[in-house]
């Protein structure tokens, strides 16, 4: 398995997807956090250091989860798109092992990305808050950091599973973004919040949210378990399908 994971990392290192992913995430993180802090209190926006302001600044998981979802899809559906999956299966005919290696790799990258981006936001935000006279944040930073790490890793897993099931890069990316942004967050969370909180996006939001800030969401610990559950179930389905699907 270690060798297969090394191969997956080598694949990622030798194509632009990982670097583009990192660049996009860092760029938006670096731009968004200072902007939110510097514009705080202006034109009706929440004051710097307020719960709403800090929640928005530290809410980097909204970006990292979507980025990892897309990267997860690319990692497997991209192999079908370019037909490199055939070489992978010739090298390791037990297909489930390849998918498991991809899941572990993407989950690891997701965890590192989530933790690093949250750390980057903190590194940018803390001096800026200090310059505005805010020396302590009204949130449990450690819990949010952990939540961001977990959510980003889990959305990577969801991406791999979705890519393995659909085998279609464009369809999976567009479908996933529409489902999460429009169906789950746009419709279901407004119309049927009691159901939406149990779905992946609802759990993803809850796991990184400030506890008690939204009564419609699960508690972070429960949300974390729900998110891990979704990632596990879809990964098992994808692994099962990988064994049976014809490679044509």
């Amino acid at each position: 398995m270690t060798r297969l994971i090394r191969i997956e990392l080598l694949k990622l290192r030798t194509t632009p997807a990982l670097y583009v992913t990192l660049a996009v995430t860092v760029f938006f993180t670096v731009v968004s956090a200072p902007t939110t802090i510097l514009l705080a209190g202006q034109q009706g926006s929440p004051a710097a250091g307020s719960l709403e302001n800090v929640s928005k600044v530290l809410g980097v998981s909204g970006l990292t989860t979507m980025v990892m979802l897309v990267l997860g899809i690319l990692v497997i559906a991209g192999e079908y798109r370019h037909r490199t999956i055939m070489g992978a299966y010739l090298g390791e005919p037990r297909r489930g092992k390849i998918l498991i290696a991809k899941l572990i790799t993407v989950a690891g990258i997701g965890a590192v990305l989530g933790a690093a981006m949250f750390g980057l936001v903190l590194a940018i935000a803390l001096p800026l808050y200090a310059s505005k006279g805010v020396h302590s944040l009204p949130v449990d930073v450690a819990s949010m950091w952990l939540g961001c790490t977990l959510a980003t890793a889990c959305f990577g897993l969801l991406g791999v599973a979705l890519g393995a099931v659909t085998r279609n890069t464009v369809g999976a990316v567009i479908g996933a973004l529409i489902w999460i942004q429009a169906v789950e967050l746009g419709l279901l969370q407004t119309l049927i919040p009691s159901m939406a909180k149990w779905l992946p996006a609802g759990a993803g939001v809850a796991v990184t949210a400030i506890p008690g800030s939204d009564t419609q969401l699960l508690q972070p610990l429960a949300a974390g378990l729900v998110l891990v559950g979704w990632a596990a179930v879809l990964s098992i389905v994808a692994t099962g399908l990988a064994h049976r699907q014809e490679l044509r």
């Binding site: 191969i7 080598l10 694949k11 030798t14 070489g87 390791e92």
Partner: peptide
């Protein structure tokens, strides 16, 4: 067979992956 290549990967890196797959 009709296995493909990632268009943005160079041949040497493609073969690095193939070598790792073959151990």
């Amino acid at each position: 067979l009709d296995q493909g290549f990632h268009p943005n990967r160079n041949a040497r890196n493609h073969l690095r992956i193939a070598a790792a797959q073959a151990n």
